[in-house]
Design a protein around this nucleic acid. Structure first.
Length: 422
DNA sequence: TCTTATGATTCCTG
DNA sequence: CAGGAATCATAAGA
């Protein structure tokens, strides 16, 4: 800020009051007679010069200031100004000694604390994340702890603190500057410590209002970030073709029990390269996919028949390749054959026989979810143990819905991988 | 612009 | 709490 303007805006108020006070009091000085006229003229000149200082360049002003300080009438002017000041009882405006904290500022501070922008980094941040998770509700509680969100929040936090520091520094510098100016001026006119204090108060209030703006815009930024982040989660993006293939491959190869375990979900998420940085979130997406798939498959089995055939054929091919590899292995060396992995890049199709099983349903009930037993292996519901793999029309798995055209490779694939005791 | 496909969300149940 | 069912919202294609 330009020094002239500082003088005008901050010091000018006091100065002009003193000057105007002097004009108002002029008649009271009249009694001193006409011999005082010359002195009054001199004082008028000095006042005029003081007022003129603000319109001049720094060097000029310095020179004039020096001139004023050495002026023969300076002590007289000083005493006159003291007298004026005493008589007018110059009020110190805008001093609110123990003013209550601004409620809006308090709100903003609380908000920034809750959002994790101010206050301790870790606790505040996760508090905000938890709050955002609560807004989402349900199982997505952990998934919101998204690194992107955290990174952006950290960025906002950093900017906020940098700016805050800058403002504080500027405030201190400016205060010091004004205090120096006032001290300098106190050589020419009477300035009480109270006035300096008042001026400092004005400056601090001015800067705290700027700080409030900073806090306000920081809050807005966090709000925007949050809403964008939540929107991004709600916004649907189709999986890649490759990802869908991986998921379908698993689904149709586990048709009797299309409920991937947590480990399987994790593996699927990795294989699908689901582009979210948080594993829990990726697993949630896999769960969503399987949930949708199960429901939609069940609702319209005939529609999915072609797809099922396709993946059955694929599975048969990979199974056959695995057999060939196993045979090759056992012939090549005495070392144990490669386990039941269809290929290095695909899943262990331990239930690949599922889609080929054609054993009729015994009671037509709906399939049951496999519950992990205490051995860590999924326990097969009774109906599945006997090979029931198809869904009933009335909400259960039905044999008729099994892709009929894929039963032929059943022996080949099933004989190798049909560990239906899985 | 309309329809279909599909990922996500919500509510409910066992 | 996982999963079923219904529904929403949007991407993708005709």
């Amino acid at each position: 800020m330009d020094e002239t303007h500082i003088m005008q805006s901050l010091v000018g108020v006091t100065l002009s009051r003193a000057v105007h006070g002097g004009m108002a009091l002029a008649p009271s000085l009249d009694h001193q007679g006409s011999e005082d006229d010359g002195r009054k003229q001199d004082i008028g000149d000095i006042l005029h010069q003081i007022m003129g200082i603000t319109d001049q360049s720094l060097d000029e002003a310095q020179a004039k200031k020096h001139g004023l300080n050495c002026h023969r009438m300076k002590p007289a002017l000083f005493s006159v100004l003291c007298e004026i000041k005493e008589k007018t009882g110059l009020s110190i405006r805008g001093v609110h000694e123990d003013e209550a904290p601004d409620p809006q500022l308090m709100r903003l501070d609380n908000m920034l604390l809750a959002e994790g922008v101010s206050g301790p980094e870790k606790g505040g941040g996760s508090a905000a994340v938890a709050a955002a998770a609560a807004a989402l509700g349900g199982g997505a509680e952990n998934s919101i702890e998204h690194s992107d969100y955290r990174a952006k929040l950290a960025q906002i936090r950093q900017i906020y603190h940098t700016e805050l520091e800058k403002y504080e520094q500027a405030c201190n510098e400016f205060t010091t500057h004004v205090m120096n100016l006032l001290r300098e001026q106190s050589r020419t006119r009477p300035i009480s410590p109270k006035e300096i204090e008042c001026m400092v108060g004005i400056i601090h209030r001015k800067f705290s209002s700027i700080q409030m703006q900073l806090k306000q815009s920081t809050c807005e930024a966090v709000m925007i970030l949050r809403s964008r982040f939540l929107d991004a989660r709600r916004k649907r993006r189709n999986f890649s073709k490759q990802a869908t293939e991986v998921l379908n491959e698993y689904f149709y190869s586990h048709l009797s029990n299309p409920y991937p375990t947590e480990e399987a979900k994790e593996e699927l998420a990795k294989k699908c390269s689901i582009t979210v940085s948080q594993l829990d979130w990726a697993k949630q997406k896999v769960s969503n996919w399987f949930g949708n798939k199960r429901i939609r498959y069940k609702k319209n089995i005939s529609k999915f028949q072609e797809e099922a055939n396709l993946y059955a054929a694929k599975t048969a091919v990979t199974a056959a390749q695995a057999v060939a590899a196993a045979v090759q292995n056992s012939q090549d060396s005495s070392s144990p054959a490669t386990p039941n992995h269809a290929s290095s890049g695909s899943f262990s199709l331990s239930s690949s026989g599922d889609m080929f099983m054609s054993m009729p349903s015994l009671n037509g009930g709906s399939y049951q979810r496999m519950q992990p037993n205490n051995t860590g292996q999924p326990e097969v519901p009774h109906r599945q143990k006997i090979g029931l793999s198809v869904l009933l029309g009335n909400g259960g798995w039905h044999e008729a819905a099994t892709p009929s055209s894929v039963t032929s490779p059943a022996e080949a694939a099933g004989s190798i991988h049909s560990d239906t005791s899985n």
